[in-house]
Design a protein around this nucleic acid. Structure first.
Lengths: 258, 258
DNA sequence: CAGTGGTCTAGACCACGAG
DNA sequence: TCGTGGTCTAGACCACTGA
């Protein structure tokens, strides 16, 4: 018992307190606390973190709350639970650039690269949905959709070509917007359309005439083609995008779990 | 109150009972129950499922248990929670073939295609780790590693070429095994090595001479190249694999979340 | 064996959404 | 306003791991 109290004391020194009256959920504050300890190295890779019981004592919350915080970190791959043994910091905690499993605004994704990314809007128009587009967006062939084409450059080298179609009435207004920045931002903050998730397929294709011209690669060069349908929180398809990128300039990463 | 009871009764008819004495966790049984209802269509897309309170009544468990079941389904993207409104079946519930975010034995993945998949082992040997391999596997250059190369055919068409390196002492025994089947199975069930997760990068490359010969594509054809490092539950790198596949025959899909 | 995570309960109060 | 999900508690028993 004495040992236990001593341990708890040590841990108390290591953590900042949490604010139970804050609107931020307690489990989330605790998650951040543990995350910080991992990132600043006070919990080292492979190291065992304090038990759930002792953390519950330290933070003065119930064990279920601690579990929720740890659950999230396990989901993120930062912690690993071992039944009967303890919870450990995972050896490999990577930073994923262009993590395919995470849906972020491509503009925001790019911003992490710094200022050397430029976006050019090549096309912006209202068109009639082809059969393929209509099928994907769950509308009728010939219905009006807003189409845009954007090209991204890294240090003046074009590497990322996006062709997008959106069919919501509100989205037709996009034609009047500046879409060199984040389209997701406009949808969410200006139009109140909440983006939830997306499904994508990925394949390797040959750059054909037009694409090889635009991306400045030789005819027939291998490029990545991602077809992505984005859905709202209501589960409605809101956008269909075809993204073609030079994989010599822009690589995708992914974390696979069992 | 009467309304409520009536509703609960209706729900009771729709669900099979659960077995609390079963070693299978209750939340998991309930998750399966709900999943079944979604898959067989008795919960339709966009439809609201019963509230957590009423499900707790129906299954005669606490609400936290119901929440855990629903949490898992939300994670899977099958359900969508809306604070204050209810929980809904997502509109788009896809079946992901070759889901990149899920780490499964490639052999098992293939089996879903049925009997037309054949695997041929092209190489099986102990080699010295190159600098690159050693770096990735966290060993020293020149250390012994087990290398294997496998080629997969769909209807006699080659489409998937895998080159793998494993460095664990136990893994060197693989040279004596039949590895036309699942290597993961051997690692887990025979050697007791538990696979936890993997990191992968994906890019489009040109098929060079040897690869284009093996995969039977024209010289310079675009193919997908996935580099994947697999980790144990202890966070140690156990395998490095380079997978080259014809994306005309084998497409990868992915679910992206915010 | 003791310590740990895995599951579960029966409550509670709050914040949000829609009518 | 009322039903809903979001969070949280203070216990409990079990299964697993490691010494």
């Amino acid at each position: 018992m004495k040992m236990y109290l001593t341990y708890a004391k040590v841990v108390i020194i290591m953590f900042n307190g949490i604010d139970k009256s804050s609107p931020v959920p307690v489990y989330y504050q605790i998650k951040k606390e543990i995350e910080d300890r991992i990132n600043n190295g006070s919990f080292k890779p492979m190291e065992k973190i304090p038990s759930e019981d002792s953390l519950a004592d330290v933070f003065n919350v119930s064990r279920m709350t601690i579990r929720k915080a740890i659950d999230k970190l396990v989901d993120q791959g930062l912690l690993i639970r071992k039944h009967g043994a303890g919870t450990f910091v995972s050896k490999s905690n990577y930073i994923f650039k262009n993590d395919l499993s995470k849906l972020t605004s491509s503009t925001k994704e790019m911003n992490e690269y710094g200022r050397q990314i430029k976006t050019e809007v090549l096309e912006k128009e209202i068109v009639n949905a082809t059969k393929e587009i209509a099928n994907i967006l769950d509308i009728k062939e010939g219905d009006k959709v807003f189409k845009y084409v954007r090209l991204r450059f890294i240090n003046k080298t074009p590497f990322y070509l996006e062709t997008s179609y959106l069919h919501f009435d509100k989205c037709l207004q996009l034609i009047k917007e500046d879409i060199a920045g984040s389209v997701f931002d406009i949808l969410e903050n200006k139009y109140g359309i909440k983006i939830h998730d997306a499904t994508a397929s990925i394949e390797a294709v040959r750059a054909n005439g037009l694409v090889s011209d635009i991306l400045n690669v030789s005819e027939g060069a291998p490029i990545l083609k991602i077809k992505q349908t984005t859905f709202t929180c209501e589960g409605e398809p809101v956008q269909y995008a075809v993204i073609i990128s030079r994989s010599d300039k822009y690589k995708y990463h992914i974390h696979r779990r069992k």
